[in-house]
Simulated scan of single mutants.
Amino acid sequence: MAVNRAEQRAATRRALLAEGRRRFAADGYHHVVLADVARAAGVTKGAAYHHFDSKAGLFRAVVSEVQHELGERVAAEAERHEDLWEQLRAGCRAFLAAGTDPAVRRILLVDAPTVLGWDEWRTLDEESSARHLAEALDALVAAGTLADQPVEPLARLLSGAMNEAALWIARGGDPRAAEQALDRLLAGLRAPT
C-alpha cells in the first residue's frame, strides 16, 4: 500500500513537471496558470500545491530539471573525445546547440534569470553546465594547453559569452557562425607552443 502511494506521488510529480515544462517552454512563465497545469496533468490543484507550493516552485523544479539535462548533454558530448581541447570545444558547441531547444531558450535563457533572480539562476547554472566548463578549463591549465591563470573568472567570461550566443541562436542567429566565433575565441586562449 505504501509503495503504491509513493509510486502515485512520484507519478503525480512527474506529470506536473512534464506539463509545467511543456507550458513554460511554449507560453512563458507569466502566461502559465498552475491550476491549468494541474488540470492538464490530470491532478487536482491541491496536488500541484502539495508538490510545489506555488507556480514559482514548479518553475524552479522545471528549471533545475532542464539545467541538469543540459549539463548532462554538455558532459556527454565532451566525453566523446579523449583530447582535453576537443572535450572543451565539443562541450561548448553542445551548449550553443541547446539554444535551438525551446525549453532551454525560453525556460533557462529568457525566463529563469528574471523569475528566479540572477543569483539563484547562476547557482543552478554553476551546479550543472558551468561546473563542467570550470573542470575542463582546470584540466587544460594543468596540462599546459591554456596559460596558467585563475580559472574562475575565465569560466564566468566564457559562460556568459556562451549564454548570450545560445540566446542569439535561439532568436534566429546562425549556429554555424556562432560555432566559428566560438572556435576563434577559444583558439585565442591557447598557450603559445
Rank of each mutant, 00 (worst) to 15 (best):
L154D: 06
V63R: 00
L154C: 00
H68W: 14
V151R: 00
G28N: 04
P102V: 07
M162V: 05
G57Y: 07
A165I: 01
A98Q: 04
V74G: 08
V43G: 08
F95T: 07
F52K: 02
R22S: 07
A170C: 11
E120Y: 07
R105L: 14
A90S: 10
L182F: 06
A41Q: 12
R190A: 01
L96V: 10
G160T: 06
N4S: 15
V115T: 11
N163R: 12
E164I: 09
E152I: 01
A38M: 04
D125N: 05
D174T: 03
E126L: 01
E127P: 11
V104W: 09
A15Q: 01
L186V: 09
R106N: 02
A15N: 03
A90D: 00
N163Y: 15
A191M: 08
E77L: 03
F59E: 02
M1V: 15
A35S: 13
I107R: 05
V63W: 09
C92G: 15
R13N: 12
A48D: 02
A98L: 03
E82S: 11
F59I: 07
L109Y: 10
A94H: 03
L58Q: 05
A94Y: 00
W85S: 00
L58F: 01
G91N: 01
L58E: 06
P192E: 13
T145Y: 05
A155I: 00
V33M: 06
A134I: 05
A166F: 10
R13Y: 14
H68E: 14
A94C: 00
D83N: 08
A112M: 08
W85F: 08
L137I: 03
G20M: 09
H50Q: 15
H132M: 00
R9L: 11
A56F: 12
A139M: 08
L140N: 08
T123K: 02
A40P: 01
A6S: 14
K45E: 10
R122L: 12
R9Y: 15
G99M: 06
Y29C: 02
T12K: 03
E79A: 15
V115R: 11
I107P: 01
R184S: 12
L154P: 05
A177S: 13
L133S: 04
G99W: 03
L182T: 07
R23A: 10
G20S: 03
E86V: 04
E86T: 11
R60S: 13
T12E: 15
A38F: 04
A170W: 07
P153N: 00
L70G: 05
V74E: 01
E126D: 14
W118Y: 15
A191Q: 08
Q149H: 14
I169R: 03
A10R: 14
Q149N: 01
R156W: 04
A166D: 02
L133I: 09
A10I: 07
Q149S: 06
D27F: 07
L146Q: 07
L154W: 00
T100E: 13
V66R: 05
A112G: 12
K45L: 00
V74K: 10
R23E: 11
L124K: 07
G91V: 02
A94T: 03
D53G: 13
N4H: 13
E86R: 14
L140H: 05
L34Y: 12
D119M: 09
A26R: 04
A98R: 06
A103V: 02
G144N: 13
E19P: 10
G91M: 00
T114P: 12
A61G: 01
L84A: 05
D111K: 07
D138S: 06
R21Q: 13
V32E: 04
A90K: 02
W121Y: 15
A166Y: 05
V110I: 14
